[in-house]
Design a binder for these strands. Structure first.
Length: 262
DNA sequence: TTGATTGTTACCGG
DNA sequence: TCCGGTAACAATCA
């Protein structure tokens, strides 16, 4: 089962399992989900994703907000369900399915006001039809921060994670350390369009695939990538440089990706 | 037992 | 206000 980012996206495909009358919400591990009683027994009418945030909207105006973070996982099974595996934080029970959520970064019940505040602070999501890419361009083109930093800032542009960051910048021949303000409009447009294409592909295959033409994922994480955690550049065979951006692993081919002027 | 991990927020200081 | 740095948290596995 692929993990992390693709799971967030795959959750969109899990809509049918989660829409409908939620008979019960329980916390098998005993950790109380604050506000659980406000959604238990109500109808989940829609599931929306804003970046990596998932919003389960209930017909009484309440929303279950889930963010899986690094470790979170969904496990969806048909009834009758077996015992929860591991540290299940919330078990959502419908007439036909049970969804267990383990290890989410965020797991909370929001009212409409809380939901609005959340959505307002999330930047444009490359996978949403209503995304306003101009908002992302305004922030990037004014920022002294590195583009590698900005692509991971979910308030700037939502949906891109650590693997996609390295892969997208490599595909656009742009070095992660280039300042946002030094990124051309044309390069930004290409980054945005490529992000859409790659993340849509990720949703479709439930795996991170950034190599053109590749479909099947071979590695244990179900990914197929060009430079992330790779020793050499598939284009020029140069060694891939490893470094850190804000304590996260970053990769770049300094032959193919133009380094910033110091 | 330790370290690493596809993420995020809070807080502080410059 | 912006930006970088640090700590904290989440669960699991090698």
């Amino acid at each position: 089962m692929p993990e992390g980012h693709t799971i967030h996206r795959a959750a969109r495909d899990q809509r049918p399992m989660l829409i409908g009358h939620v008979l019960d919400i329980s916390s098998p591990q005993g950790r109380f989900l604050e506000g659980a009683e406000r959604i238990s027994g109500h109808v989940c009418k829609a599931v929306e994703a804003y970046g990596k945030h998932l919003l389960y909207d209930f017909s009484n105006g309440m929303t279950l907000h889930i963010h899986l973070g690094l470790f979170g996982k969904f496990r969806a099974i048909k009834v009758p369900a077996d015992e929860p595996r591991g540290a299940v934080r919330v078990r959502m029970i419908s007439a036909t399915h049970v969804v267990d959520i383990n290890g989410p970064n965020t797991c909370e019940v929001l009212d409409m006001s809380g939901r609005d505040k959340l959505v307002a602070r999330i930047g444009p999501d490359v996978l949403r039809a209503d995304a306003d890419r101009e908002k992302a361009w305004k922030k990037i083109s004014k920022s002294r921060s590195a583009i590698g930093q900005l692509l991971m800032d979910q308030a700037v542009i939502a949906g891109i994670g650590n693997i996609y960051r390295s892969e997208i910048l490599w595909r656009q021949k742009l070095h992660p350390n280039v300042a946002g303000k030094d990124v051309s409009r044309e390069a930004f447009e290409q980054i945005w369009d490529d992000s859409v294409a790659l993340l849509e592909k990720g949703v479709k295959h439930n795996a991170i695939i950034t190599v053109d033409g590749a479909v099947k994922a071979r590695s244990k994480y179900g990914e197929r990538v060009n430079i992330f955690n790779k020793p050499s550049c598939p284009a020029c065979a140069s060694a891939i440089r490893r470094f850190e951006i804000a304590k996260r692993r970053a990769f770049a081919c300094e032959t193919c990706q133009i380094a910033p002027e110091i």
